[in-house]
Each structure stands twice: as C-alpha cells, then as structure tokens.
Design a protein around this nucleic acid. Sequence first.
RNA 1: GCCCAUAUGGCUCAGGGGUAGAGCACUUCCUUGGUAAGGAAGAGGUCGUGAGUUCAAGUCUCACUAUGGGCUCCA
Length: 604
Amino acid sequence: MSENLIGYMDDQGNIIDTQSAGENCTATPIEYDNSEAALEIIRHSTAHLMAQAITELYPNSQFFVGPVVDEGFYYDFRVDEQIGENDLKAIEKKMKELIKKKYKIEKYEISKAEALKKFSKDDLKLKVMERIADDTVSIYKQGEFEDLCRGPHVPALRFLHNFKLTRVAGAYLGGDENSEMLTRIYGIAFADKESLKAYLTMMEEAKKRDHRKIGSEMELFMFNEESGAGLPFWMPKGAKLRYKLESILHKAHLTRGYEPVRGPEILKADMWRTSGHYACYGDNMYLTEIDGQEYGIKPMNCIGHIQIFKQTQKSYRDLPLRYYEYGVVHRHEKSGVLHGLLRVREFTQDDAHIFCTPEQIASEVIEVVEFVDAVMKLFNFDYTMEISTKPEKAIGDDDVWEMATQGLKDALNENNLPFTIDEGGGAFYGPKIDIKITDAIGRKWQCGTIQVDFNLPERFEVEYVDEDNTRKQPVMIHRAILGSFERFIGILTEHYAGEFPFFLAPTQVIFVPISESHVVYANMLKKKLLAEGIDSEVYDKNDSLNKRIRTAEKQRVPYVVVIGDEEVTNNTVAIRNRRTREQYNLTQDEFMVELTQQLQEGKI
RNA sequence: GCCCAUAUGGCUCAGGGGUAGAGCACUUCCUUGGUAAGGAAGAGGUCGUGAGUUCAAGUCUCACUAUGGGCUCCA
C-alpha cells in the first residue's frame, strides 16, 4: 500500500476510504494530492479534526453536520460559549496539537438502534439520524473523539497540515429560518502549503476588487447611516458612469422596437390587491396612507405599463407592443441580506413588458435572449440561463403555468441554448428564465430575467381587438437585462476592478498640463471632447507633475494626457494609455479619432 | 429577521478608565516641474446614537443604528 494512498474511487465515482475498502480493493486509488476527490477526503477529515479540537476547548459542544462544500468545509455545532473570529486561532492551534498525537482514524459500524441509544443524550445527533434511512450507521474515531459520519476520511491525522479556519458564522439548523441557530465555522484545506497560500492570496485579490471598496475609492456611490440602510447615493462619478450605461441601453432598446414609458412611484393599494402583490409580496412592500386611503410604493413596474396599455384601445396590429422603463422600485429586503450595491432596498430596473399573442411568445423570448447576449458580450460576461417553474405561493391555473413554462423551454431548445431548471423558483405570477452572471469572486448573481405572465392581463382585463373583431387577452412578458443598474454596476466594478472600458468610464481622459502656460490648451481640448460626449478633467492643481500623474493614474481613467510646450506647439497630445499600459504621441485629430472609435465600441 | 464581529477627524488606521494620535486628503505660501508622492506652515475629531456603572468613560455594561462575515449544499 502506497504511503500516499488515502482512498479509492469506484466506477460510479463514489469515494471509498481506506477504512471502508477491503484488503484487496480493486477500485482506482486516490493519492494524497489536490485532486477533487483527494481534497474532498482531506477537507472532510479536517472538519472532523476541527470538531475534535472544539470538543477539547469547549467540552459541552454538540455537533450537527460537517460537510465538504464548494469552497472548503464547515461544521455546525451548538456551544454554550460565544465563539468569535478571535477564537479561530486557538482552535487551529489545538488542531495542530492533535495532529502531533498521530491518531489513526478508525471506523466501525453499529446498528441504528444501537446508535440511537449511544447518542440518546445528544439531540443534534438524533436529528442527524432522523435523516438516515439505513439500518446501520458508521462511526469514525480518532483518539477519544468519535463522530457519527458517513465518511470518507483519510487514514490518519498525519495527512492534515495545510488548513485555515476562515470564518465563524451562524447557521440555522437544517437551513430552516424557524429553527435554532447553531454556530458554524468555515475552513479550507489543501494537500500542500503552496496551494493554501495561493488560495489565500486569491481571496486577498478578490477583496481588492470589492465594488464597495472601489466604489468609495473612485467616489462612485455611497451609503449614509442617517438616511437608512440599503439606500444608495450616486456621487458625480458614479452618476456619470450610470448615465453612460443608461444611454447605451436606451439606444439599444429603441433599435429593438421598444418604446419608453414611465409610471408613478406610488399607487393605490387596491391596484396591488388586483395584481396579487398585496397578498403575495405585501411583506416586502412599503405601504402608506394618503387622505385616508392606503397606497403602496411600487416594488415592480408592471402595473404602470398595464395602465398605459389599457389607456387606448389596442388592435392585434399593435402587437407585439414593447414598453420599457428605467423603473425605480422599493423592496423591503431583510436587514441582514443587504450588501453594497448588490442587494439594496431601492433600485432601478431596466424593465420592459412585452404585450403579445401566445403565438408570439417564442419569437419574442428569442429576441430578448439575443438582446441579453449582446449586452453580456459587450462586457465579456459569462452567464448561464435557468428556467424556474411554479413556486408554492402562486396565482393562476396549473394548465396556464404548464403552457407558459413549455413556451420558455421551446424557445431555448429551438435555438440550442443550454439551460438548467429550478423547480419551484418562479415568480408567483409566472414561470421565468433567469440570466445569472458570475462575478470576480465567482459568486453568481441573478441579473436578467424573462418572465411569461398570463395572470396579470387577466386580473387587469387587458384586451386587444383581434383580426376577427373579437376581444382577446394578450400575454405579458416581463423582462430585465441588467436586472438593476445598482447590482449590475456593482458587478461591473468588480469585473473590471474599476478599470471600466472607455465608453463607460466616468472620467475618460485626464489632462495634466506641465505648467500654467499649457492650461489653456488643455481646457480647449476638454471642451472639444465634451462636444463629442467624452468626459475629461484638467489637473492643473499646484502639485508637482509627478504627483498629478500619480493622482490621475490612481483614478483608473483610460487616458492620462500630458500637455507641455511640445504638444502646444505641434498641436499634439502625449498619451498614457492605462488600458494598454502604453505611452505614445498623437496629433489632435488622431486623438479624436481614437477616442470616438472607442466610444463606438459601446454600441449594441 | 437570526448568529458572530466591527463603529476613533473626508479616507485608512493606531491608542486605550483621568478630558485624543499618525499617514493620506484638505487650506495657504514657496516651487513651474516632461510621465506614479518637491518643500513649509495650517485648519479639522470629544472617539456611531442613547442610557447605565464610576470621583472620572472613546476606553467597562446595556439598548439602538449602520457596516462586515454567514444563515442551499445533508451523518
């Protein structure tokens, strides 16, 4: 047996640890390294080692589950003491002490009945066993410590060295909000020191591009304690960035046959009763009273668009009719889930509603999907699509749901677009396709969404006159591509680490005149750029040249342009291109051509 | 909402039961410099909010507010 053998993998991809495998196991051996299978074993055992250390430090602790997850492992447990980040070091130290005792990890099996008796005083273990169907359970033992566990584990503690406990958190027992909250400690482990170090470095890098950090460094947006949580303020730089994104998208909507509309921010509560939001979404709505009547601030824009559609009589010739709005909505998100721009209580959706016939659903959905793809390509985003089906809390008939869901699947299938299914994840009024993009730290965020809705047109009695002069009900397709400007800009910021493409950068050019005599030329160029819709600044503060270049660079602007005697005399510019990290000289005309070309890149 | 942590000048942070420090930023002056920090002087905070303990509280306790890490991943 190899020194480095820590388990086997059978034909089905199941991991068998050395404790479970017989003497002559013929399955593929798993060596101690950073392979997926090896890491799973190592991390699982590290979780146990952590539990053992916690038991020694906090003798009253009781353990629930300690699985391996995408990034490392965790263990949920109940403990009398409060454990904070500062206690993690002590636990790590104890873990290292335990390793020195060179325990083997042994396994034995007992019947479930015996196990129930053995752990009769441990209600968490009993809870765990409730979820086990088998008649026998396995127990792993290392030194004095033993734990009910399915495995797999490394043969001995000597395989565990390169780990780090990363954070302590609270977690509901079984993930149920109404259950008791246990303490959870997360950790990570690798087969070698270098990989652990690389992982920790990567986490540091991810922190550096955190949109909250960059957003405050670049003065894009802010929050304010006195004003309330989850309510973002857009500072001049952020507002410029946002305006550019809005403009790009505005043009893209017009070329795709959308028409701009706008509804009020607040509507009578009866509207929300009719729509079903009051019943299904009321907990998340901000309600108020005006002149003795209840009103609700809109959490969605659909109602406004429906009213506009209904204002004039529509013919089948008007369909598909596409209304779009940068709709400001308010939603009461739980305080604990707020997160920078990625989860806020007031945000602006790039929202549209397409009124069409059932026959037009597939082609409209395809067009939206193409629109989504164009936007994602513009920013080089990877994204995935997911179809969500009927949730528990829903309105509308089952067969209506079925028809709409099938419509979405057909649209994607016919175009060979891959998707996954989220059973029960739909909105209460219809099935949907969600577009999820991955941010710099690998987190997935739902951005765009395409939702088919047969319910609202019925509830609001939306109609059009068909070819045969009868009144029919159109279908509504709700869709957003960015999702919200807030979240999307948050993700963009992390994606680009603040180095936005030229067509989005809040300040696109910074001029640094070498001395006072060059300021006039710089200001003239600034004006010229502004006429082309390009934002620039002139850094003529009384600082040294080097200092001003440094300050300009730190702003992450695409172009820093130095202006001196040479440039003024020859009508040229000396460019520092921050995106390509190159330095070169251009004539004024060449410069204008280069910039306007880059503006064009933002066209979709 | 729940668990844990954090909250000091605009920003980043140090300090720590006896009435606050640094760097950057800011203001003024000198310097007019060719590609990532020239020099000098100066202004600015009562330590998130409220209450309590104490002769004395940024410093201890409690509440609140805000921020951060979590709350699907099954022995």
